[in-house]
Design a protein around this nucleic acid. Structure first.
Length: 574
RNA sequence: CGGGGUGUGGCGCAGUCUGGUAGCGCACUUGGUUUGGGACCAAGACGUCGGAGGUUCAAAUCCUCUCACCCCGACCA
């Protein structure tokens, strides 16, 4: 690739629209351009990165025994109506009509499509197990696209679907995908952590996410992990053994009484005013859970975990009541809700920790008033569950020895054990050995291709630009001719460019009539792993300068040795 | 959808309050000088000031409506 012949529109200034480093560098480095909110054009350099990642994914998927297909982007709405996701997913599913006014959707994922394919084609268990995958554009009409490729509306994803006759088969298929994923990310040069996750809207019973640990603001998710035993889960799902238990367990329960707390709405205000620690207070959070209203009780110093709460409430999603809703439900303004005398039609879900508390503070369901010395016998609890978020510094729920640490990560892959949700809805069955009709047991497995690319940048960069890992870099080396106006230098660089290409080494050749500083700055920004500089000093000595992207200083290498060196690097790093 | 903000040449912005016919830096074109970390001189090209309507002798600027984009929140890979 000669820079004068391809299209790499680098930007000198940061575009105003980009917040995240990785997003800024994609824009500035001439990798992508935005078409409209959340929808991007992939320029030549980006396209090469996509190919690199896709090829690695393809090789590992094929090796695992899966087969590549391509499914349509545009689907008839009918299939989505049959599984119910047409109604469940909501506006995120892009809907449109064709010219005959037939309702269509843009594929947000392809469970419906593969399942409907196989329901018509698979008759016998002898065809199983089967795993089909594709690398395809997905469309999700995100409420709020942001962070460039990380939360776009249109993105590239590898999605695989496994089909088995029984759970044992699914376990094997799942493990194969987990192994393939570990191999994929390792080959991409990315360290990932596999964490347990909630299944969410996908349905199913068991799921993992593969996170690239970035520990930057780009890390969208918090992961709690145990350095001792390897336990890891995202914040939604993580469990923990608390370090500081109830305040004083041996305290004698007293009978409660009201106190005036004028305008004290927050835990901080109330505890400061009453001079008690936050863990002697129970906060009552009012949620809408489907048709019902629930009151969630957690200790004052804890954070509610809405995923855990919705699981406990048995609904897909909970939503915090607004001020008017709280007032209607409790008869008091926000900040004064409490479980004592809670309306009978509101179910009370208490966090496990609350059960150990004695003589605590709660809201009085009346303005400017709290109750002190409240005990569990003073109110009704319909259900007890862990509904608080685990915190860093608490003990690991598995080994119980080490304390959990918190890290920030970007999800690049996920695996779901789906079971029969889709095969049941669409009637996808096969006959088993005994001649009985059996529903297909499914799994689905995704890798965000474009997202992985951006996660890699978020992980590997410095203040000057990207620093790609060799296996997914758009090219191995960046050949800079210091002065393309100088005939002798330019000829030497041309020759090296030809030789590199003949040797099968991918090279981006900066043959522009630009000042050296401009070329170096662009090379750092674009971030290829190696830079070769052809300059006047080298012309005399027969040596060119070779520099690794993150190295402090270059080294001088004999012209004839550059290609063998790079070939050796290629061999060891990909 | 709620809250906040921005739309002016390819990019980054000033000008809007106080109306007078559009400006700066970078990029771009041509010529020249330069050439190892974002050069210099000279000459140029590029704008329906997001769109529609209105007020006015006169609108980037005031009014009404509308669209797009960005940030915070809910949602999510």
């Amino acid at each position: 690739m000669r820079m004068t012949r391809t299209f790499i529109p680098t930007l000198r200034d940061d575009p105003a629209e980009a917040e995240l480093v990785s997003h800024r560098m994609l824009l500035r480095g001439g990798y992508i351009r935005k078409l409209t909110a959340g929808i991007y054009i992939y320029l030549p350099l980006m396209q090469r990165v996509i190919h690199k990642i896709s090829n690695i994914v393809r090789e590992e998927m094929d090796r695992s025994g899966a087969f590549e297909i391509t499914m349509p982007v545009l689907h008839p709405a009918e299939i989505w109506q049959q599984t119910g996701r047409y109604y469940d997913i909501g506006p995120e599913l892009m809907r449109l009509d064709d010219r005959h006014k037939r309702p269509m959707v843009l594929g947000a994922t392809h469970e419906e499509i593969v399942t409907s394919l196989l329901r018509g084609e698979l008759r016998s268990y002898k065809r199983l197990p089967l795993n089909l995958y594709q690398i395809q554009v997905k469309f999700r009409d995100e409420i709020r696209p942001r962070f460039g490729l990380m939360r776009g509306r249109e993105f590239l994803m590898k999605d695989a679907y496994s089909f088995d006759i029984d759970e044992a088969g699914l376990d094997i298929a799942y493990q194969k995908m987990v192994d393939a994923y570990k191999a994929v990310f390792k080959r991409c040069g990315l360290e990932t952590v596999m964490v347990e996750s909630d299944t969410g809207a996908m349905g199913g019973k068991f799921a993992h996410e593969f996170m690239v640990i970035v520990d930057t603001e780009g890390g969208e998710a918090t992961i709690l992990s145990c350095p001792e035993c390897g336990y890891a889960a995202n914040l939604e799902r993580a469990e923990s053994i608390p370090v500081n238990g109830p305040a004083k367990t041996e305290e004698a329960p007293q009978s409660y009484s009201p106190v005036e707390t004028p305008n004290m709405k927050t835990v901080e205000e109330v505890t400061a005013f009453l001079n008690v620690p936050a863990r002697k207070l129970v906060k009552t959070l009012m949620y809408r859970a489907g048709e019902k209203v629930v009151a969630a009780l957690i200790r004052g110093d804890r954070q509610i975990n809405e995923t855990k709460l919705s699981n406990a409430a048995g609904v897909p999603m909970v939503e915090m009541l607004d001020a008017a809703g709280v007032e209607q439900a409790t008869g008091a303004p926000v900040g004064f809700a409490g479980p004592v005398g809670m309306r009978a039609d509101i179910s009370v879900i208490a966090d496990e920790e609350v059960k150990a508390m004695i003589n605590f503070v709660v809201g009085a369901n009346a303005g400017d008033r709290h109750l002190i010395n409240v005990n569990l016998t003073d109110f009704r609890i319909d259900k007890t569950a862990t509904i608080r978020s685990a915190e860093a510094g608490e003990y690991c729920p598995r080994c119980r020895k080490e304390r959990l640490i918190s890290r920030r990560g970007i999800e690049v892959g996920n695996t779901f054990k789906l079971g029969t949700k889709y095969s049941k809805a669409l009637g996808a069955t096969v006959l088993d050995e005994a001649g009985n009709e059996r529903l297909l047991i499914m799994g689905s497995y995704g890798i965000g291709i474009t997202r992985t690319a951006q996660a890699a940048i978020e992980r590997f960069h410095d203040d000057r630009g990207i620093a790609w890992p060799v296996p997914i870099a758009p090219a191995l080396c960046h050949l800079v001719c210091v002065n393309s106006g100088d005939a002798a230098l330019s000829a030497a660089a041309d020759k090296l460019y030809d030789d590199l290409q003949k040797a099968g080494i991918e090279v981006l050749y900066d043959d522009r009539q630009e000042r050296t500083g401009v070329k170096f700055a662009d090379a750092d920004l674009i971030g290829l792993p190696w830079r070769i500089t052809v300059g006047a000093k080298g012309l005399a000595s027969g040596m060119w300068e070779l520099k690794a992207r993150m190295a402090d200083a270059p080294e001088m290498v004999l012209a004839g040795e550059i290609i063998p060196r790079l070939l050796a690097i290629l061999k060891s790093e990909s």
